[in-house]
Structure formats: structure tokens, C-alpha cells
Computed example of a mutant assay.
Amino acid sequence: MIQSIERALHILECIAHAGGNLRLQQIAEATELKTTTAHNILKTLGALGYVRRRPNDTRYYLGDRILNLARIAGDDSGLRRRLRPRLEAMAEASGETVFMAVPSGDEVFFLDAIESPETLRASSQQGERTPMEGSAIGLLFLAFMPILRQQLLSLHASRIGPDVAGEIDRIAERGYAVDEENYLPGLNAVAVPWLEEGELRAGFGIAGPSVRMPASRLETLAALMTELCRT
């Protein structure tokens, strides 16, 4: 076996078994590693997105990348059932097509959706996958998953460009994403995050014709969706 890989996996297992977070000294003791050795491995795992630290917190947490992998291998149907009532509330309040999506690798996977009863409406993308940079909800994920964002921007900087990078910064500041006919002509959308213990687990979106969803309504819907995510 490759010792460095074995040690890294042992550290991740220890953090997971401890409920998702541990301090450096606890990790060193649990893995029987020298503190400096454990710290160096944690630095590498952090750079790759497998562990992270929060501001003003000395503990190490499982990072966005490993939580994303866990979600892919986990129970999507359980997440869908748990968040379905909020999706239904958003559909009733907006009258537009609503959807729930999750990060899946470097793509957006549309896990659930409810189509608008209107004749002119956005279609459901349930079961589909799209690139992260191609939609409001994809940009939302990049704004709330810093390691994934860093990797995508470094790999596809020429394709993404500074305008998209700037928009991701603005999304992180205001807490929601909007799309005004960028993804599809005549279609506007707004997306908000679903967070659990400060970590992004999914995102909700509402999409509809721009004639019914001007910029002013996008802001109103963002506030409504954010409130529904808090209740």
C-alpha cells in the first residue's frame, strides 16, 4: 500500500466517525501520527477540497468535495422527499416552474421539479445534467463551494472569463443568483441555496418567461425562497 494515501484516508475516516469535525491534536492522536505529519496531510487535503476549516474555528471539517462525493453515492430519493414540501410551497407561491438541483461532480443534476400550470412556461429539467457555469443555479453552487469554484475557474478560465467570475462574487455577497435571459432567450430564473450546518447541500430555483419574471420580481422571489428555506 502507498503509505501517504493510507494515512490520508485514515484521517478522513476519523473526522467522519467523529461527526464531521476534529481538532489537529485529536486527529494526530486518533491516527497515531506526529502532529506535523498530520498537519501536512491536512494541508494537502484542504487544498484539494476534502477538508476545510471555518473562520475562527480550529477544527477540521469534511470539505465540499468529499461531501459532494458522498451525496452522489447517497440517497437522492431521501433528500428529494425531505425537501419536496418546500418545493411545493415555492410552486404554489410563484405559479412558475420550480426545481431542486444538487452538485454532481462539476455538473448540476436536477433532482426534482414542478412545472408551472401556465401554457407559456419553463420546462422541467428533472433528471438532466448541465454544466456548472451554464445556469443561475450552477453559478450559485460555485459561489457556495469555493474549492469547486477554484478548480473550475483554473481549468476553464478561458471559457468562463472574468465576467462570470465577477458574477460568482456578487452571488456570494447577496446570497442568491439570478439569470436574465443568459441561459435561454426569453427565460429568467432565480436560485437560492439550501444549507445544512453552513454547508451547501442543494439549491432551489424558479424559472419562467421574462415577461412574467422581470428583474424586480426576481428579487421578490429570492426573498420568498430564502424565507421558505429558513422555516
Rank of each mutant, 00 (worst) to 15 (best):
M1R: 11
E6A: 15
E6L: 15
L9M: 12
H10N: 06
L12S: 06
A16Y: 00
N21G: 02
L22A: 01
Q25G: 15
I27D: 08
I27N: 07
A28R: 07
E29Q: 07
E29K: 03
T31V: 09
N40K: 11
N40M: 10
N40A: 08
I41T: 14
G46E: 15
L48G: 13
L48Y: 11
T58V: 03
R59A: 15
Y60T: 09
Y61W: 12
L62V: 04
L62M: 08
D64W: 02
I72M: 14
I72N: 08
G74E: 11
D76K: 07
D76L: 12
G78K: 06
L79P: 00
L87V: 09
L87G: 03
L87M: 05
E88N: 07
A89M: 12
A91W: 09
S94H: 03
V98E: 10
V98T: 14
V108W: 09
I114Q: 05
I114S: 08
E115H: 01
S116F: 01
S116K: 05
E118A: 13
R121S: 03
G127D: 07
G127S: 02
G127F: 04
R129L: 04
R129S: 03
S135H: 11
L142P: 07
F144L: 15
I147S: 03
L148P: 04
R149T: 10
R149M: 10
Q151E: 10
L153A: 02
L153V: 07
H156Q: 07
A157W: 00
A157T: 02
R159L: 13
D163K: 13
G166P: 03
D169A: 02
R170C: 05
A172Y: 01
A172Q: 05
R174Q: 13
A177P: 08
V178P: 02
D179P: 03
P185K: 07
G186P: 08
L187E: 01
A189W: 01
P193E: 08
P193M: 12
W194A: 11
L195M: 08
E196M: 11
G198H: 02
E199D: 14
E199C: 05
G203T: 07
G205W: 04
G205E: 14
I206K: 12
G208Q: 04
P214G: 15
S216P: 00
E219K: 07
A223L: 09
A223C: 05
L224Q: 14
M225E: 06
T226N: 03
L228M: 14
